[in-house]
Write a protein that binds this DNA or RNA. Sequence first.
DNA 1: ACTCTAACCTATTCACCTG
DNA 2: CAGGTGAATAGGTTAGAGT
Length: 583
Amino acid sequence: MSNASPTPSLDVSSEQHAAGSSPSHRDSSALPQSLPQLDDTLTSGSALDGEKHPKGKRKRTAAKDKMLLEEAYKSNPKPDKQARLEIVDRVSLNEKEVQIWFQNRRQNDRRKSRPLTPEELAALRYGGMHNVSSDPITCRSAIADNDGSCPAADPTGLQLVDRAEVSLLFNHTSPEHSQSFTDAATPRVGSQESTTQARPETTPPQSQEAPSSQRSQEGLEAMAHSFSSSVGYLANRWNLGGSFSTPSTLVRGGDDSLKLERFPPSSCSSDTTYDANKKSQSNVRLSLSLEGKAELVSNQNSPTRSVPPRSSSTLPGLPQLRRGGLQRSHSALPSITLPPISALTSSLPPRLVRGRSRDVHAWESCADSERRDELTAQAENESNGSAIAAISLLRSSSGILQPSTTKRNAPVSKPQQAHQAKKAKFGRTNSTYARLENVGAEPEKSPRENLSGKVKVAMLVTPTDSDKENWSPDEDGNPHDSPRRRPLPVGPPSKSQNARQPGRALQENKRPALLGNRANTAPSRSLGASKGAIEIFEDSGKKVPASRDDEVERFMRGEVSPSKKGDMDCVAGLLSLSQGAWR
DNA sequence: ACTCTAACCTATTCACCTG
DNA sequence: CAGGTGAATAGGTTAGAGT
């Protein structure tokens, strides 16, 4: 363990606690033979006949305790110390054990809700006809063969699976679940002809079994690029989409090109509400080209981002933060475009700006009971027929999923790539950034070296699961970074930054790609560099007043107000990084 | 700037349980 | 006995507080 001290402190507290109100407390390390709870234990008894530690027999949590723990977990999956102590009061575990239990419980949760892997998708697609190879390459080729192309042939190593594919899979496996799945995850799917599911070439359920060559290659490519790296992450994205992001859908534009459009989550208020509160937006945007050059791109013909109001009918601040401020455009098609940082930050809701905090009270004050009710309802709604539930069902019901030969938490990568697997947490090759970086970076460069810096921006754009807890409402609504938030790297990182550079953001990148993640929106190189004007497709189309243009112009000229200085620094840092200034 | 602490994470190991 | 599950460990990161 890197931190050797926490455990003793926990033990101390638990011992103190045990001396007080919890007579049932037991310290497994100190009392290996004690069995004070045998009376209470309702679990299989053989497991409880000793507490040798470690490597000895392991005790099982008593059923009664488990119930209590589960209850506590439902109300708060991440109890703080005080909450843990309260739990310790009620169960026959010490704080450390409770902590570990919650840790494992969360891990278990994530595991169950983990999106389908390419292998699993492939397995589902084949309906178990083929064994799922643990070799992702094998699987890739299988999919590629099936599709007549290999969208996953990109170096990211991840499959490109479109949403329709998953829908088909669900239709294929469990119609009734598919229904609820679709309903829950894509509330407006029926009204969107754009939805790939509704597209004639993929709609007929019979076509599931048909060779995928029938599919529109164009559509596949577009979807592939849009959803690159999303693979099985669709579930999480949809789930998140309900609360934090907006799922996107493909639409066929007037030019018959596929564009991604966004539709609001189930909890979202109507478009009318949206429109009524739209913020003015610029007609141009600062964009980062594939070559790493800053460009001003036109917003015309592209829907502009809308920042919904903080209406009580919609999800409260935080979700809107994700939905409004972090929804990336679906600019996947011709080129990569990055919005100005200010565009991201300016759209953050007033109270829920940036700033990470583990202070649960901050969240409590933010999410008052009423709002929590909304969130709870939403969560329940999503858990009922949600993608996660469906995937979990698939996992549990499908023998072809999760082949037993694979470790539960083993990365998708091959076992022989142990080192890479270990480093997978830094492996961002599935992201757009990775592709961007790979374009110019030496392939042998270690992920750590390659990833320094930029990931911070990704984190800023897409706070992920574990980051949620660290995003705290900003009391004054100040768009500036929280004083305690580490600043984005500007210029060469400091020594200490280097030491911890990869950071959580990197880890998160291999996690379900949220919708806001650029990985979902960026094209792969196979599309080639854009030759024309770069378009950014934003949430909804609305032209913006020219005042924003002026603002952008001032921004580009360096006439930046002090309050925008940070944004400018971010952009400058990005640009310098994109041009190879890694250090 | 640096260190320390607490919290979290992922990955892994391994005892236990079950079919 | 193989495989699944859960408890526990190891190693890593971050945030925040203190020096």
